[in-house]
Simulated scan of single mutants.
Amino acid sequence: MLFLTQLRSAFRRHWSHYLAEALGIGFFVTNAGLLTTLLEHPASPVRQALQTNDTARHWLMGLAMGVVIVLIVYSPWGKKSGAHINPAVTLAFWQLGKIRTADAVWYVLAQVAGAISAAQLLKLILGKLYAHPTVNYTVTQPVPLPRGVLLAFAGEFVISFILMLVLLLALHSKKLKELAGWLIGALLALYIVYETPYSGMSLNPARTLGSAVAAGEYYGMWVYWVAPSVAMWLATVLFRRFHHGENLQCAIVAGCSPSPSSPHSPGEEPPQYPNEGNT
């Protein structure tokens, strides 16, 4: 009963942050769908021009989605919510004690809702283009091999662990915190080019769920929820165990320095510590 009260109170105070999370991942899913259709559908002039150049198409996709992440992180609404747009990232910030439990729950719900809504909108607008096998709703599934599930799990675990470790190192550094979004964008681009053949390159449980709901295909779904979440949680636990430098100030991927006049000051952003203070 107490937790339900905390959820209601958090929603009244921070609904705009949750909306920003939903819009952020919705923007990501929309761009992923549009770019995949542009680069992979046989009727696309870009696909026809690069018919035999798979590497060029993969790099275009990687660089474009890297830019999308940077735009989200440094946009006003990305800075407002922190630009988690990923349940595994929210879990990591919660583990660090930088977001309350009630806010974390709403963040995850908003991320899932945003991803599902964006994929459904693409399905409605693009129709058969989005459903074509070369696009397939941008579904991420294990490769159809005897050990495809294990390969997908390992791939998702490794890339998620590295991404969270890089993010934490950047955000805890005075020199790198303002570049955290660019570093994540660069990693995402590299992952799309080099890791996609192993797991489909998700990193994001909500994004994978949104595509799966649109396609009605849920094979291997647990891999894309468990591997990134456990990997980012583990990276956070190990980082807290061995890091003894500057303390993280907030759960915002772009980095911040809260002050009484800052839009990210305590009381105006999702609270920095779980289950303390006002409910």
Rank of each mutant, 00 (worst) to 15 (best):
I25Y: 05
G277L: 02
P258K: 05
Y130L: 08
G245Q: 08
F3G: 09
W15G: 12
P87R: 00
T134F: 06
T208N: 11
L2R: 14
K123D: 15
P144Q: 05
E21R: 01
A113N: 11
Y194E: 10
Y130G: 05
L171H: 01
A254P: 08
A118T: 03
Y18H: 10
Y218W: 06
M65Y: 03
V112W: 06
V223E: 13
W182Q: 12
Q111W: 04
A212L: 09
V70I: 11
A131H: 09
L209N: 11
S173Y: 15
K128P: 06
P144M: 02
Q120P: 06
I184L: 06
A119T: 07
Q272T: 13
V193L: 10
R207L: 12
L188P: 04
T236Q: 11
S202C: 02
Y218H: 10
L209D: 08
Y191N: 08
M1A: 15
Y224A: 11
N278L: 15
G127K: 05
S173V: 09
Y218S: 07
Y219S: 11
L179S: 14
W106C: 04
M221T: 03
H243F: 11
L34N: 03
L168C: 05
T140H: 06
G220N: 04
Y107L: 08
L4G: 14
F28W: 13
G62D: 09
N136S: 14
E268F: 06
E217K: 00
V105C: 11
L60P: 01
P144N: 03
E268Q: 12
L176Q: 13
G78K: 00
L165P: 04
S257Q: 15
A22I: 01
G210K: 07
P146G: 08
I72C: 04
W233C: 08
H41F: 12
P45N: 04
A104F: 01
Q141M: 14
L23M: 09
E178K: 12
F239V: 04
R57Y: 01
E217H: 04
Q6E: 15
V223L: 12
E217M: 05
F239L: 10
R240S: 05
A251H: 10
K175F: 08
N86Y: 01
R100G: 13
W233D: 12
L19D: 15
T134I: 11
R240F: 02
A10F: 14
G114I: 08
R13F: 07
A110T: 02
K128R: 10
P76Q: 03
V108G: 01
E195F: 09
K128W: 03
G216A: 07
Y224I: 09
E21M: 10
P205N: 06
M221E: 07
A83V: 02
V67L: 09
L122M: 09
I72A: 00
Y107E: 06
C256E: 13
T134K: 05
A22H: 02
F93V: 10
S259N: 14
P258W: 07
E276Q: 10
L145T: 07
M61D: 04
L39I: 05
Y130N: 07
M65K: 03
S199A: 03
G78V: 01
V68C: 00
P228F: 02
